[in-house]
């Protein structure tokens, strides 16, 4: 049962990754060219019909997979890196700084990722793939930092750390050899879960018009423009939504499966 979750997740994410890579070298139609009637219904030639300008919709949904994965992976890496660094530093810091940082993180976490991301986009000069990654990554880092801080403190309280100190190991080495390997499983699972949320946050940002501009149209943007033609062409809101759901579901399953694999104590509970 546990393994099934991991496999379903791997397959769903795998399909998305393959499609995303495929769009780099091959597309069924030119995404910017008219290739059929306006708002055509799904057919063998156009699996998801066409949009209001007569462009093939399936091609656009395929490109959306690439955008979603790019932003998701980018944000997860950035958030993981900043969050882990801050968290470890906070765990080592003097009491006053540690308290201040913990309080700040608590306030930041109370704000949803999307809102923080909106502010970062507002602070940068125009929306692009880069700002989306930066925005979501920064918002994510608060959650990771809080987790890393707690986990690191727990590791630092162990006897083997005292032993390592006594045998003359420096703090830098201790972090590399003892702290990071010990907290890695839990942190990786948390990052994987955040990855799914990052994909949703990216879609929301671009739905609000704060994501990457076309031709890097993401699923959120497709949904936003398909909303007004939902009566004539419901496929326009169904296709990107299903694709998004499949990817996020896959990521969540993968994260759950990973937790059972890497972190048996928490997985069993």
């Amino acid at each position: 049962m546990k393994k099934t979750t991991l496999w379903i997740g791997a397959i769903l994410v795998g399909i998305n990754v393959v499609i995303a890579l495929l769009t780099l070298v091959w597309l069924p139609y030119d995404p910017t060219a008219m290739s059929g009637g306006r708002l055509a219904a799904p057919s063998w030639a156009h699996w998801a019909g066409t949009d209001r300008l007569g462009r093939d919709y399936f091609t656009q949904v395929m490109i959306g997979a690439r955008i979603a994965l790019t932003v998701g992976v980018g944000a997860a890496l950035l958030g993981g890196l900043i969050g882990t660094t801050l968290g470890v530093l906070a765990a080592f810091a003097q009491r006053g700084f540690d308290d201040a940082l913990a309080a700040t993180l608590d306030i930041l976490i109370a704000f949803p990722t999307l809102l923080l991301a909106m502010l970062v986009v507002a602070a940068s000069d125009g929306a692009s793939l880069g700002t989306a990654i930066l925005a979501i990554g920064i918002a994510m880092s608060a959650i990771i930092a809080r987790l890393v801080r707690i986990l690191t403190k727990r590791v630092l309280a162990q006897d083997y750390i005292t032993a390592a100190r006594c045998s003359g190991l420096g703090w830098g080495r201790i972090v590399l050899v003892h702290v990071l390997p010990n907290i890695a499983p839990t942190v990786l699972v948390a990052i994987a879960l955040q990855f799914g949320l990052a994909v949703i946050a990216e879609a929301s940002l671009s739905y609000l018009g704060l994501g990457a501009p076309p031709p890097n149209a993401s699923w959120g943007q497709l949904l936003q423009s398909a909303q007004s033609t939902v009566f004539n062409a419901p496929i326009g809101v169904i296709a990107p939504g299903l694709a998004l759901m499949a990817l996020v579901l896959g990521i969540n399953f993968l994260a759950d499966g990973l937790r059972d694999l890497l972190d048996p104590e928490r997985g069993a509970a």
Binding site: G196, S204, Y207, F231, G241, M245, V248, L249
Partner: peptide
């Protein structure tokens, strides 16, 4: 938990 809230909104409107 795998769907964005605005998609549910659009589907309900439809």
């Amino acid at each position: 938990i795998a769907v964005p809230v605005f998609w549910i909104g659009i589907l309900l409107i439809w």
